[in-house]
Design a protein around this nucleic acid. Sequence first.
DNA 1: TATACTTATGAGCAAATGTTCATATGTTTG
DNA 2: CAAACATATGAACATTTGCTCATAAGTATA
Lengths: 131, 131
Amino acid sequence: MTHPLSEAEAVVEQARAQLDACPCGCNREATAHLFDTLPDEELLYDVADLFKAFADTTRIKILFALMEHGLCVADIASTIGATQSAVSHQLRTLKQARLVRPQRDGKNVIYSLSDDHVFTMLAQAMTHVCE
Amino acid sequence: MTHPLSEAEAVVEQARAQLDACPCGCNREATAHLFDTLPDEELLYDVADLFKAFADTTRIKILFALMEHGLCVADIASTIGATQSAVSHQLRTLKQARLVRPQRDGKNVIYSLSDDHVFTMLAQAMTHVCE
DNA sequence: TATACTTATGAGCAAATGTTCATATGTTTG
DNA sequence: CAAACATATGAACATTTGCTCATAAGTATA
């Protein structure tokens, strides 16, 4: 015997839970309690560092260029119109901040966004700017 | 006559739609198409500028201090342990980037986060750092 | 192994940034 | 209006940052 209604309710519950758990922290009510007190100095320092990694036009161009798929250094350079050296220097910064991930492919090194978190931060910023 | 199953399905559908519409852009599939081509130079510049506004320890401290509720300049300064002048200078930067909003209250000026977008960006960064 | 090709790195320089100190601007109250 | 208090701003200085140029390091192929 099936219980159509309760099954559906379970799905609804699941969907709601997923909303609450949205990893991006966009649910203010569900997240606010995390900030009752000022976080540790060190943590705040790390947060600022994360934003610093995004805070340059060249690096932003690189990251957007990688949103579709990975690219080698030379292709990144030609896509965004920058020097190989400049791109390599900035990739170093992005790599240290764990925003991109290198992967050797013969002579080339393919860089990709580290994870969906990076994508989310970029999308979030883009929507903010576009408003 | 009621239709329990189809009503429940409607709710499920609504919940799913809400998930897709998550304003933070955390749904990669739903957002990816926005980045098929590299955005305009100017837009990328603005995105970098937005991140620059977050990219300083003092400013991050100020923003986190404001996550609970608005504060006047002096209170911000004492909360984060910084000079009145330093805080005022940085508030200027944050104001220009539309991350905070001033509101006169007698002799004081109460600063608050501009909108939930700012909250989201901070929460997002915090979760990224904490992983 | 020698050569060509791709990427990474170090030094040096110019520009941007954040702080302090002094002071100006604004606001309330005697 | 004068004095006290809160905030904003300008100049100067030190630090950080991002670029270029030259060159090193890693990889594939003749």
